[in-house]
Design a protein around this nucleic acid. Structure first.
Length: 500
RNA sequence: GUCUCCGUAGCUCAGUUGGCAGAGCAAAUGACUCUUAAUCAUUGGGCCGAGAGUUCGAAUCUCUCCGGGGACACCA
């Protein structure tokens, strides 16, 4: 227990005084709340006869005491509403201690109270609850940061990121925008889930603890199961399990999955993050592009009521159709250089000229990918599909139907960041085995993110997987866009922090 | 991992060439029966992130460490 500061000592004394007065600061019985602050503010102006017998509960966020009458602000899950508390109303008899002592002395900002009364409008025009009864529901022992606001100017904002993320409960209490961001995130997920369900796809769950990790190129977290005495990995993707379900006969499955990657952390990466992966049988990547456009446009409408969303300095339009470039076209569009016929030597020269640090291990595919990363991706603000990636970078994607050396893959890029990744899934088991073996070679050369060979997954492909289109879409990244959040920490309630 | 900026009261922040530790809000005491960043008066509140060094003297300068932000690297 750390030593208490002055204010914490005073609050504990208030707690003791309440107990001495026979008042339980943490009562058990349910409190008969019958409305909330947003409902009152919405409906009362239209009909002043409503809310003449309200019972409402919440946290005290400010107090303005004027002798025998006081105003306070009560915050519940829907917002804030002003309270008017008059001494002779809440303590009509001789004993005024409920007002003079319990309310004025022993009640603090941060306490959770319940009030009963009626709603009226003050002379200043503020919708207010005239309190006739009030009761302590939970005494707060720690002073809250006091954030004040006037004319849209915020004073003393609780803004230290370290404290905000480590004590998100305080952040949520005092910063209403934070609550709003997370409500939007949930709306986004609901919208996506509804969309997928309406299309008849089945939401499923697959293992998080996996004996082999796969489906992406990343370093995993490693753990151990005691009874089995076996190493297990936290999943880096659920791709290989969902494809097994397609083999098993489902024709559309999806999962919202927490994935875990043991890699660097920054504004765009948290070690655990959420993806939605979707696999649909008998479709290809062209079909999937249309679905992504439709789904994301719908999400923007559900979250914002508009296809236009302000992100940083830009207005981003999610309205269909989005621009589509092949990777070669995108590079040519942004640099004027046509690399489609170039050999490795020529690509090295182009890469150097656009500022890519080239090293000997880079193959053609890696060079092309780096050139695009350096020239195209940084310029794509509006949602744009980039299609037809080099085969070396895409060991789970099907070879392109007509373009040698490429695969049928696309990413959607928006605000200079990848928001989804999809392909016509490789279902040729012979080809897939060769690709895995190429990955093993990379691993032997020291690539810590190369894929491991999953014999059971290959067996599933040998049993036979229908032609299938697959999609992975980053929920955190999409949430950042839809909520105009500059950091992934703003869309994850409890982002990973170094232990103190 | 590298570079860079930051860490002072419960919160937000000042702090001069190195010279007694400051403000606003919050808190305490008092006044005030329609206030709203309420107001007025009075008061208390600090391991200046931690440790070492330089110095007569360190919040301030130097080094190490801890925590955080940003950028880069990594993350197909």
């Amino acid at each position: 227990m750390p030593t208490l500061n002055e204010q914490e000592v005073i609050r504990r004394k208030s707690l003791d005084t309440l107990l001495e007065m026979g008042i339980n600061p943490y009562p058990s019985p349910m409190y008969p709340v019958n409305c909330n602050s947003a409902e009152i503010k919405e409906k009362f102006p239209n009909d002043n006869s409503l809310f003449q017998d309200v019972c409402i509960a919440g946290r005290i966020m400010s107090r303005r005491i004027m002798g025998a009458a006081s105003f306070a602000e009560l915050q519940d899950a829907t917002g804030r509403i002003q309270l008017y508390i008059k001494r002779d109303e809440i303590a009509p008899g001789e004993d005024k201690s409920l007002y003079n002592t319990v309310f004025k002395k022993l009640t603090d900002i941060g306490d959770i109270i319940g009030v009963k009364g009626y709603v009226f409008t003050t002379q200043m025009g503020e919708i207010t609850i005239h309190v006739k009864e009030f009761v302590m529901l939970s005494k707060s022992l720690t002073p809250l940061p006091i954030v004040k606001e006037k004319d849209d100017k915020v004073f003393d904002a609780f803004s230290n990121p370290d404290q905000r993320y480590r004590q998100r409960y305080i952040d949520l209490i005092v910063n209403p925008d934070v609550r709003e961001t997370f409500v939007k995130r949930t709306k986004l997920v609901n919208s996506m889930r509804n969309f997928l369900n309406e299309h008849g796809y089945l939401e499923v769950e697959t293992p998080i603890l996996q004996p082999l990790y796969g489906g992406a190129a990343a370093r995993p977290f490693k753990t151990h199961h005691n009874t089995l005495d076996q190493t297990l990995y936290l999943r880096i993707a659920d791709e290989l399990y969902l494809k097994r379900l397609i083999v098993g006969g489902f024709d559309g499955v999806y999962e919202f999955s927490k994935d875990f990657r043991n890699e660097g952390m920054d504004r765009f990466h948290n070690p655990e993050f959420t993806q939605m992966e979707l696999y649909v049988a008998y479709k290809d990547y062209e079909w999937m592009m249309n679905l992504v456009e439709e789904m994301v446009e719908r999400i923007a409408l559900d979250v914002h009521g508009s296809t236009e969303v302000k992100v940083g300095e830009n207005i981003i339009s999610f309205k269909r159709p989005w621009k589509r470039y092949t990777m070669y076209e995108a590079i040519e569009h942004f640099t004027g250089i046509d690399i489609s016929q170039m050999d490795e030597h020529q690509l090295v020269e182009v890469a150097k000229s656009v500022g890519v640090e080239v090293d000997a291990s880079m193959g053609k595919g890696k060079l092309i990918d780096e050139i695009f990363g350096e020239t195209g991706e940084k310029k794509l603000i509006q949602p744009t599909f980039i299609t037809d990636y080099p085969i070396e970078m895409s060991p789970l994607a099907k070879k392109h139907r007509s373009k040698p050396g490429l695969v049928e893959r696309f990413e959607a890029v928006c605000n200079c960041k990848e928001i989804c990744n999809a392909f016509s899934e490789l279902n040729d088991p012979i080809d897939q085995r060769e690709r895995f073996e190429a990955q093993l070679e990379l691993g032997k050369r020291g690539d810590e993110e190369s894929m491991v060979l999953d014999e059971d997954f290959l067996n599933a492909l040998e049993v036979g997987m229908p032609p299938t289109s697959g999609l992975g879409i980053g929920i955190d990244r999409l949430s950042m866009l839809m909520t105009d959040s500059p950091s992934i920490q703003d869309v994850i309630f409890f982002p990973q922090m170094r232990q103190l």
